[in-house]
Computed example of a mutant assay.
Amino acid sequence: MVQTFDSSNFYSICDGLAAKDTHLATVIREYGYPPVWTRSNTFSTLVLTILEQQVSLASAFAAYKKLLEKLITITPEKILALSDEELRSCYFSRQKIVYVRGLAQSIVTNHINLEWLSEQPDELVRTTLKQLKGIGDWTVDIYLMHALQRLDLFPLGDLALINAMKMLMHLEKPTKEELLIIAEPWKPHRTIATMILWHYYIKRRTLSCCISCI
């Protein structure tokens, strides 16, 4: 059976992680619990996740908001009906036009079924989605974490996660292998540990911005 999190178990998992990791305990003590970051398991969620690849979240959301204003509801059929020029007017790059169209086509032809994916194990979700152009491990990790609420993801391709670990744990140039060793005790709840670290990263960046404005 697939294990997931929601608001009913999220905080107890946070407490359990804090009880066995002093760094995570420090984050919760100083900044409180992270938000329960979830998204709906929909085509529009995957579009947003693709837009978030290798850009700031603000830039990605600006493009998503522009698309939402144009379409009202973001569906595969509506995406396929848009021209390249219309998608570029919503701040889509050439590559992301290709990626989102490919995803839309796969859903329309039922090559990808999101409801079916929600019931499958993580690795099958990963191999299925990575067949699509432009969808790699980071995109799948974020989809599994936010849309399917899977418990044990550790997205090593996420810069915010890596930077949070470097700041919190005073690491200089950790290798992926070293980070995986650090995260090993967090299993099978590495998703929640990641969210605690994201929370720390956001709070520290916000604090730094406030201080720089004084």
Rank of each mutant, 00 (worst) to 15 (best):
T49M: 07
L80W: 00
I196N: 03
P34H: 02
G136H: 12
T109E: 00
Q131L: 03
Y31G: 04
T22G: 06
P34C: 06
A160E: 10
L24D: 13
A63T: 05
H189E: 12
A60I: 05
D122A: 15
S208H: 14
N113W: 00
I72K: 15
T175I: 01
I79S: 08
F10A: 01
E177Y: 10
I72H: 12
S212L: 08
V140F: 08
H111D: 14
E184C: 01
Y200A: 05
H146I: 13
Q120D: 02
D6A: 01
W116H: 11
L103T: 03
L46M: 15
T22H: 14
A63F: 09
A25W: 02
Y99K: 01
L68N: 11
E86Q: 15
K173Q: 13
I28C: 06
Y201V: 04
T109S: 02
K20Q: 14
D141V: 03
W37Q: 08
G32C: 01
K65E: 15
T194Q: 05
R126K: 09
D152L: 08
L103G: 10
E119L: 13
I142Q: 09
H189R: 10
Q131I: 03
T26E: 14
S59D: 13
E115N: 07
Y99N: 01
E30R: 12
L17N: 08
G136C: 06
L144M: 06
M165C: 13
Q53G: 10
L151K: 12
E52W: 01
S8V: 09
S118V: 08
I97P: 03
L148H: 12
S106T: 00
A62K: 12
I192Y: 00
E115W: 00
S83I: 06
K78H: 10
R29A: 12
T175G: 11
A104M: 11
H170V: 06
S12I: 11
L82I: 04
S12M: 10
S106A: 15
Y201F: 15
T22S: 14
Y200T: 06
H23N: 12
L148M: 12
K96V: 06
W116A: 12
K130N: 12
C209A: 15
S12L: 07
D84V: 13
D21P: 03
T22N: 13
L159K: 08
L132R: 05
I142D: 03
A19I: 05
T73F: 04
A18V: 01
I50L: 11
S89H: 11
L51S: 07
L124Q: 14
P34F: 05
D84H: 14
I182L: 15
N163F: 02
K66A: 15
R39M: 15
M169Q: 09
S44N: 04
W116M: 15
Y91N: 13
Y31R: 10
L129D: 03
L132H: 07
C90L: 08
S44V: 05
S93F: 08
M169F: 08
K65N: 11
F10L: 04
I13L: 09
R190E: 04
R88Q: 13
T109H: 00
D158Q: 00
K203T: 08
K130F: 13
E119W: 02
A193L: 07
E172R: 14
I50F: 10
L132T: 05
V140M: 09
A147W: 08
E86P: 09
I112S: 00
P76L: 01
P185L: 07
S59R: 09
D152W: 00
L80F: 01
F92Q: 02
Y11C: 03
